[in-house]
Design a protein around this nucleic acid. Structure first.
Length: 807
RNA sequence: GGGCUCGUGGUCUAGUGGCUAUGACCCCUCCCUUACACGGAGGUAGUCGCCGGUUCGAGUCCGGCCGAGCCCACCA
């Protein structure tokens, strides 16, 4: 055994070993063992693994490795989510091409090839370097043919279930990218603007209204005031004339109008913002579009038609100023919604979009969440709040190029929807022919393909299907779904988790999983979110290179499930120290266990019973913690046992029996060996889910020849044995440790080496401590241990015993 | 504005009612002892955010306040 542990040598070695020996392979034929199936989060590949991934994937891997050691048949697939705008942009940049300039089919092909050939191999290798124990042969990409087929099938199924509709509706829209976008794609941006007090006329008299967006005047459909606002009650039922455009709109009361804001009266334009849409719906107002999909003023805007939004705003303000319709202008700074990709202000544009109808299911959605086991529990609240706040059906269409196409054609004449035949899936309507030659309704022969693609979430919400349907064996597939566990971070509860539940419920009326384990985020050292723009991002590969993958995993294992954690470099140092300690302690143990054949002693010595009892409690605690996905508690339990009980005390105490075994009986020596063997084996087993490489190294070095399993990661998890719990032995053993500690302190404070011999005087106050005297003599290097009645010196903590140490 | 989480020695952290509050990093002292100087033995350091309440007893439960982080909403 080498003097020092070198992760640079060991980690690549075991990484390769696991792949070659297929240690993590899912056994499709094993229909007996309990299955544990994981709905692994599919990352979007944009380069090398990043720190957030390294954390959340480590944490889910702890759980999986524990379950594997519990003897379960592990279904742990690895998928990727390269379907969507992020990948589209990445490929455009990498290849210097524009999606717009080519057929969708061709662009998708380039994307797939680039991702799979140039990015994926490196990324998957990064995951293996981190020690992820997925079965990487169970692989899907949310944009591959397999996924497309399932996604399109899902669409067709929901259409038949009358859960989908296509509607001309206002949607969030980016005029630069010319696509509908969803809430997730938006972000807030602070911008300078003006509050303009402009003049509407009611019965020829002025009515002042404040607005930041005068360019929307041509789309004005109503004026609102708060029903309790005394100032404006008199306008009830009247009409106001819109400045410059000179048409009339009704003046209405609605509680959403804030009397405190601006002049307390507000114009509603379809559509300036979310509230405008709500008003339109609630008061059944007409829809007027002043802005086109390209972000230009429409014909409604009269002389301003064709102008860009900001250009029109300026022109309209100028004109109003000239005509005395602008009474006041106040600069403000406010947050506006922008598209995160390009920073363009989000507009609401009416266009034909596909929706999944689910707003009517809010009560059911809450019940669905009830039926899931949430770890930690409080994360469910986020789901509930999201559901309660839902106001719109699920918009799933995107006017993009890269994505899963809708399997749909329309009749040019009557707009009838023609779905693809399921046996033809996956289809690309832009390339493939419709399953019928003519419209079944009006017999029109001209069928138009749908150009839009589905939003990423429409497909990624099917991951339980995407992965389990890779399994051919029908019987096994039934055992896999619903899946055992969805591990994911808390930021996408309202998207990925929620959407997956919705899809599974709409299709099969069951939850997609039994448990959900929500992990937190890694933050920068000051508790701030890591982001490229802040420049506080830490690269996991550098960490693994500087320390080790095990150290990085150790750090990931210190944060409590669900908690965010600031990145602490010193924790990596602690991890490295722990690994060094494990290596050295093992070196010592293996040296003394040479030739040991696993034999059990007739009788255990007191100190051995003390250690075994503590060990059983550690096994119990870490097992119970892992059962509820609290890997950090499991880790700290074994950490404490290893450092304090095993290294600091037991090894020191047992040395005498090992080095001077002639002084002891054969059975006493055997007792020590048995205890060393099992305590250390259990320690590395319990550490194994977190520190996967060094534990494997130690297992292969010594334990394998007796334990026989190919890898520590497929050995049996330690079984809690209450028969080894011995409270009396623990108490007496603790007393021994306390007295030894007093002796050490005495030496230390007197500037002496710990090997310095001392004299120990004791008044046991009637306690029988005979069983520990020999060990005490050995560990404290006490030449004399004397019993003195009536001694008043130092009290041994936890007892009445008095002790005095001298040279 | 709403929600969730958190607020413990200089720093990070354990701890869901009960003996002198856990561990780590830092700092100081001592020790090269046959697993480990990539170490060991000790030590200094905390009014457990603030106020009030429940209780024989609260870091731990309840209420209020203050602060931080994240998510969501608003943004005329």
């Amino acid at each position: 055994m080498a003097d020092n542990y070198d992760p640079k040598v060991s980690e690549p070695k075991w990484k390769k070993y696991w792949q070659e020996k297929e240690i993590f392979k899912f056994n499709e034929k094993d229909l007996k063992s309990e299955v544990f199936s994981i709905d692994t989060p599919p990352p979007t590949i944009s380069g090398r693994i990043h720190i957030g991934h390294s954390f959340s994937y480590s944490q889910q891997d702890f759980i999986v490795r524990y379950q594997r050691m519990k003897g379960k048949n592990i279904f742990y697939p690895f998928g990727t989510d390269n379907n969507g705008v992020a990948t589209e942009r990445l490929i455009e940049k990498m290849k210097g091409i524009r999606a717009k300039d080519m057929d969708r089919d061709k662009f998708v092909k380039i994307c797939l090839e680039t991702v799979q050939k140039e990015l994926m191999p490196q990324y998957v290798d990064d995951m293996k370097t981190l020690g992820l124990s997925c079965d990487f042969t169970i692989f899907y990409d949310t944009i591959d043919k397999h996924s497309m087929k399932i996604s399109q099938k899902s669409f067709i199924d929901l259409y038949h279930k009358k859960r989908e509709y296509r509607k001309d509706a206002p949607t969030m829209w980016c005029p630069t990218c010319e696509t509908g976008i969803s809430q997730v794609e938006c972000e807030d941006k602070e911008m300078d603007s003006f509050f303009n007090d402009i003049v509407f006329k009611v019965d020829g008299k002025n009515l002042l209204i404040a607005t930041t967006r005068p360019e929307l005047l041509p789309a004005c459909v109503a004026i609102f005031y708060h029903p309790d606002d005394e100032r404006y009650k008199k306008y009830k039922g009247k009409k106001a004339k819109v400045p410059l455009f000179n048409f009339e709109v009704p003046i209405l009361a609605d509680e959403r109008a804030d009397p405190e804001k601006g002049t307390g009266i507000v114009m509603c334009c379809t559509f300036g913002d979310q509230t405008d849409m709500e008003w339109q719906k609630a008061h059944n107002l007409p829809i007027k579009m002043a802005i086109s999909t390209a972000g230009k003023m429409t014909e409604l805007a009269g002389k301003y038609q064709g102008m860009a939004i900001k250009e029109a705003r300026k022109a309209i303000i100028e004109d109003m100023r000239e005509q005395g319709l602008l009474l006041n202008q106040k600069p403000i700074r406010h947050a506006v919604n922008v598209h995160e990709r390009c920073g363009t202000e989000v507009e609401f544009i009416k266009s034909k979009q596909w929706f999944i109808k689910y707003l009517d299911l809010k009560n059911d959605m809450l019940k669905w969440a009830e039926a899931l086991n949430w770890y930690p529990k409080h994360m469910k609240v986020r789901y509930d709040n999201w559901v309660k706040g839902l106001q719109w059906d699920w918009l799933i269409s995107r006017q993009r190029f890269f994505g899963v196409p809708f399997p749909v054609w329309y009749c040019k004449k009557c707009d009838e929807v023609i779905l693809a035949d399921e046996k033809d899936l996956p289809v690309d309507p832009l390339k493939d022919k419709a399953p019928v030659k003519e419209c079944p309704k009006c017999k029109c022969k001209e069928l138009i393909p749908e150009r839009d693609v589905m939003d990423t979430w429409a497909t990624s919400s099917l991951t339980p299907r995407l992965s389990t349907e890779l399994v051919k064996n029908e019987k096994m597939r039934k055992r896999l779904y619903p899946m055992s566990l969805r591990p994911q971070a808390h930021d996408i509860i309202t998207f990925w988790l929620f959407n997956t539940v919705v899809k599974s419920r709409l299709h099969d009326d069951i939850n997609p999983w039994k448990d959900v384990a929500i992990s937190g985020h890694i933050q920068d050292p000051h508790g701030k979110k890591m982001s490229k723009s802040k420049g506080n991002v830490i690269a996991p590969l550098e960490i693994m290179n500087k320390y080790s993958a095990d150290a990085l995993r150790f750090l990931a294992g210190t944060s409590k499930l669900g908690d965010d954690m600031p990145f602490q470099e010193k924790e990596l140092v602690t991890a490295t120290k722990t690994m060094t300690k494990m290596w050295n302690a093992s070196k010592f143990v293996f040296m003394h266990l040479e030739g040991y054949n696993g034999a059990k002693p007739k009788k255990f010595t007191l100190v051995d019973r003390w250690l075994l009892s503590k060990m059983q409690k550690t096994v119990k605690e870490s097992t119970e913690s892992f059962e509820v996905y609290e890997y950090s508690k499991a880790k700290s339990a074994v950490d404490l046992f290893f450092w304090r009980n095993f290294c600091d005390n037991y090894l020191e105490i047992v040395k005498d029996r090992l080095y001077n075994s002639a002084k002891y009986s054969e059975d006493e020596v055997l007792s020590a060996k048995y205890t060393l063997y099992h305590a250390l084996l259990n320690v590395i087993k319990i550490f194994a889910p977190v520190m996967v490489f060094i534990t494997e190294d130690l297992y292969q070095t010594y334990f394998k020849k007796l334990e026989k399993k190919e890898s520590i990661h497929v050995t049996e998890w330690p079984m809690y044995d209450s028969k080894q719990v011995d409270e009396d032995a623990e108490k007496l053993g603790d007393t021994l440790v306390e007295i030894a500690s007093i002796a050490r302190k005495f030496k230390s404070q007197n500037g002496k080496s710990l090997k310095e011999e001392v004299k120990i005087e004791l008044d046991t106050k009637g306690f029988d401590i005979e069983a520990i005297i020999e060990d005490l003599r050995a560990v404290a290097k006490a030449k004399d241990v004397l019993f003195v009645e009536g001694l008043e010196a130092e009290k041994v903590p936890g007892t009445e015993i008095q002790v005095k140490v001298s040279f």
